[in-house]
Design a protein around this nucleic acid. Structure first.
Lengths: 258, 258
DNA sequence: ATACAGAGTATTGAATAATAATACTCATCT
DNA sequence: AGATGAGTATTATTATTCAATACTCTGTAT
C-alpha cells in the first residue's frame, strides 16, 4: 500500500491554485483573480495563496497585473500542452489525416480522448466559426452525452464503461440532451453496432456531432474522431450521407496507422 | 526586496519534473522516461524524483506505464492550455478572423506571442500537412529570426527590443537563418517600415513565413499573425502578392477589435 | 476631511512536510 | 550463482512551509 509520504502536498496546492482560474472562467466568467479570490477558491489561507501565486508568477505560469494586482494564466502554461501533444502518438498520426478530412466539406474536425468521465478535445482543426471555447484544444465535456465519448465508451470493456457511467452525472446541457439511463444505454448499443454515433444538440444547441472510434492495435477504443456540423446548413440526412462516411473513413485510417 | 520565503521550492521541483519531458523530446527524441532518467534530467535525487512523479501521476499530469514503469505526459496537462487560452483575449478575438483568413488561399494561419526571447504559437489553424510540431499550439521558436518575432520586436520600445535581443543566441537553424547582428537589425528596421516581415527558410527549410503585427489599444505590438507557405507551391513573388496583404489585413482586423 | 475595513505585503517562530540516506526487492546481465 | 542497477519502501532528521500577525495602502462610508 502506497504511503502518503510519497505525496507532495505543496505541489498539489500549487496546482490547486492553477485550477481555480478554470473554475473562475466557468463559474464566474472571470479572466483574472485577486489574491483574496484565489485564497478563497483554492481553500488556502492568505499567506499560502501569497506564496504559491508568487512562485507561479516567478516560474512563468501566472501573470500579475502590477496596476490591478490581479492574476491571470500565463503563456508558460502552453508549454505543458505542447509537451503533452508531442508525446501523444495518436494525435501525431491523426493530425495529417484530420487536416485532409477537414477540407472535404469544409468542416471542423476534432480528436478527443477519454479522461475520467469526460472527454478532452486534444486536437482541433477549426474550420467554421463557433463558440470560442469550442475551437480551442483542451475543452472537457462529459463523455456520456458527447458523440465522441459515446463511441469510445461503446467500444470499451463493459466494466470500464460502467465505471465511467457510474461516475457521471447525467445532467442535461440542452433540452435535447439524452439523460435517461436506459436511453443512454440504448444510444451506446446503437453506436457500437453502427460503428459511429450522431448526437444532435447534446451539448451545443444546433450542433450535429458525428464521431467514430479510433482503435489501437489491441482493438481498444483509445480516441474518437469527431466532426461537428451546424443546423440549418446541415441536417441529419445530409450528415448521414456525407459526414458519417468521412468520420468512419478518417478514424479507420488513423486506427490502421497506430 | 522580495524575500525567498515567498518562493515554494517544492512547487518548482514539481514543475522541473514536468519540464524534463519537453527536454527529453527535444534532446533525446524520447516520448517517455524512466524514474532514473527523470532524476538525472531534473537534477533531483532518487527519492525526490519518486515523490514528485508519484504526486504528478496521482494528480493526473503524468502517466505511468505499469508494465514498462516509464512515465509520460498525461492529458491533464491540456487543461492548463485551455485555461490559458480562455483567458487570452487576443486569441479569442483573433480566432474567427484566423479561421476566415485560412480559407482565402487554403493556408495554415497562426497567432504568436512573445515570451522571453522566444515566440510561442498560441493559436494554430492547421491547413496544410507540415511537420507535426509545426501544427500544434505551444511550440516555441526564437523571436530574433522567426517572422512573427521580428514584427513584434520591430514594433516595441527600443530598450525592450534590445533586452530581448541581448538575451538571444543568434544561432542558425538552417543555412538561410539570418544571424549576423547587423543583418538582424536591418531586417527589424525593414519590418517596422513595411508593416510586415517575410522570412524564407529561417527555421524550417522551404518555408516562407509571413507575419504582421497585432497592436493593442495603446499601440503596442502584443502578438503577430503569421502565415507559413511552402516552396515550391509558393515563391516570394506570389507570397508578396497574395499572402502579405492577407496577413496585414487580418492582423489589422484583430488589432481594431482589441 | 476623517475613520474604518479589507486587500495586499512582509515578517518570523514553530510545526510538520519534505528530505535524503538507506534497506530491500526484482530483473537483467555476465 | 553473483553482481549491478532500477525501482520501491522506510524513517530519522531538518529545513521548508505554515500561519499568525504586524504593517501599508486604497477605497468607501460618514
Amino acid at each position: 500500500m502506497r504511503s502518503d509520504t510519497l505525496f507532495v502536498s505543496s505541489l498539489e496546492k500549487g496546482f490547486r491554485v492553477l485550477r481555480v482560474f478554470r473554475q473562475a472562467q466557468r463559474e464566474l466568467g472571470l479572466r483574472d483573480l485577486s489574491l483574496t479570490e484565489i485564497a478563497k477558491l483554492a481553500e488556502l489561507d492568505k499567506s499560502a495563496a501569497q506564496r504559491f501565486t508568487n512562485t507561479l508568477v516567478t516560474l512563468g505560469y501566472l501573470n500579475k497585473n502590477p496596476r490591478t494586482r490581479r492574476y491571470s494564466p500565463a503563456i508558460g502554461l502552453a508549454d505543458f500542452y505542447y509537451t503533452y501533444v508531442l508525446s501523444n502518438r495518436i494525435a501525431e498520426i491523426a493530425m495529417p489525416r484530420m487536416i485532409e478530412a477537414s477540407k472535404r466539406f469544409d468542416t471542423t474536425v476534432n480528436l478527443c480522448e477519454l479522461s475520467g468521465s469526460d472527454i478532452v478535445y486534444t486536437i482541433r482543426i477549426p474550420h467554421e466559426k463557433a463558440r470560442y471555447e469550442a475551437t480551442v484544444p483542451g475543452r472537457r465535456v462529459p463523455a456520456f452525452c458527447a458523440a465522441g465519448g459515446v463511441v469510445i465508451l461503446a467500444n470499451q470493456p463493459a466494466e470500464e464503461r460502467e465505471a465511467v457511467l457510474n461516475g457521471s452525472e447525467f445532467r442535461a446541457y440542452t433540452d435535447h440532451t439524452i439523460t435517461d439511463p436506459e436511453a443512454v444505454q440504448t444510444r451506446l448499443e446503437t453506436a457500437r453496432r453502427n460503428g459511429f454515433d450522431i448526437g444532435e444538440s447534446q451539448i451545443i444547441v444546433h450542433e450535429i456531432s458525428t464521431a467514430a472510434p479510433v482503435f489501437n492495435s489491441e482493438g481498444r477504443a483509445v480516441a474518437a474522431l469527431q466532426i461537428p456540423v451546424y443546423m440549418p446548413l446541415w441536417d441529419l440526412e445530409s450528415t448521414r450521407e456525407k459526414i458519417v462516411p468521412l468520420a468512419i473513413e478518417t478514424a479507420r485510417a488513423i486506427s490502421y496507422s497506430l
